[in-house]
Amino acid sequence: MSKPIILTGDRPTGKLHLGHYVGSLKNRVLLQNENKYEMFVFLADQQALTDHAKESEIIKDSIANVALDYLSVGLDPERVTIFIQSQIPELAELTMYYMNLVSLARLERNPTVKTEIAQKGFGESIPTGFLVYPISQAADITAFKANYVPVGNDQKPMIEQTREIVRSFNHAYKTDCLVEPEGIYPKNEAAGRLPGLDGNAKMSKSLGNGIFFLMTLILFVRK
């Protein structure tokens, strides 16, 4: 009997921090160690381009850093498949097909997207790719037929968006080939949104208000 499939990942736009650890990385390691799942963890470099298209060097440099962060928290490449999103072109192709199943109004109502747009200060200059990146996430999840997706609590609207796309696709094409995923969320909801050092609602790579793993290591060594 095949194992349930887990897929999760991060946008490589900078080094990961403690907010990522309590929000999802800790869960990933625990799930890996249970040995009950087939697990895929990926670096979403194409999604990172949606708000860093003119800063591609940041993404290029961050891929190795995020991969090292994965190893540092205990993800084991012997037990987990770690991959780079752009190395699988079929994911972008599937995203294009899914775009025809989601309205612009639905994307604009996504609470996570609305919050991130406000945080990034796009104003009227929202990159189209950024607005539709929940569809890209749905393509990643469904391409691997993931049953579960470990994420932070702020990603619940993204999981629901994926579930809607699955239902829409299966209904439109009279099939059941797409799997409707479930989110796996931190048990401690407060920890899932660890406050930033500047008092913002949550730590963020883009805001530079996190406690990064290297900083944590330095503090530990000093002790």
Results as ranks from 00 to 15, higher is better:
Lys202Thr: 00
Met99Trp: 15
Leu91Ser: 03
Gly121Lys: 01
Ser206Cys: 07
Thr50Cys: 06
His17Ile: 06
Leu25Lys: 08
His52Asp: 07
Gln85Met: 05
Asn200Asp: 06
Asn33Arg: 01
Gln87Asp: 08
Asp140Val: 10
Met203Ala: 00
Ala44Asn: 07
Glu180Met: 10
Gln32Thr: 08
Thr8Asn: 11
Ile82Gln: 10
Ser56Asp: 14
Arg106Val: 08
Arg109Val: 01
Glu182Gln: 10
Asn65Cys: 15
Pro195Asn: 13
Leu31Glu: 07
Val132Lys: 13
Gln46Lys: 04
Ala64Leu: 14
Thr128Asn: 00
Ile126His: 00
Ile84Gly: 05
Phe83Trp: 06
Phe144Trp: 05
His171Arg: 10
Leu49Ser: 07
Phe42Pro: 04
Asn153Thr: 12
Ile159Arg: 03
Asn35Asp: 09
Ser62Val: 11
Val80Ala: 14
Asn27Cys: 11
Ala172Asp: 03
Gln155Phe: 02
Phe83Leu: 04
Arg11Val: 07
Arg106Tyr: 03
Leu107Met: 01
Gly121Met: 04
Gln85Cys: 01
Val166Gln: 03
Lys114Gln: 01
Asn170Gln: 00
Leu30Cys: 03
Ala48Gly: 13
Asn188Phe: 05
Val132Met: 15
Ser2Phe: 04
Phe42Lys: 07
Asn27Thr: 12
Arg79Phe: 09
Arg167Ile: 11
Ala139Lys: 06
Pro4Ser: 01
Ser72Trp: 01
Glu180Asp: 05
Leu197Pro: 12
Pro157Lys: 08
Ala67Gly: 13
Asn100Glu: 15
Ala44Met: 08
Pro127Thr: 00
Glu57Asn: 15
Ala143Tyr: 14
Asp61Arg: 14
Ile126Gln: 00
Lys60Val: 12
Gly123Ser: 02
Ile135Gly: 12
Thr115Gly: 12
Val22Ser: 12
Lys60Glu: 15
Asn27Ile: 13
Ser206Val: 04
Glu55Trp: 07
Met1Tyr: 13
Glu78Tyr: 06
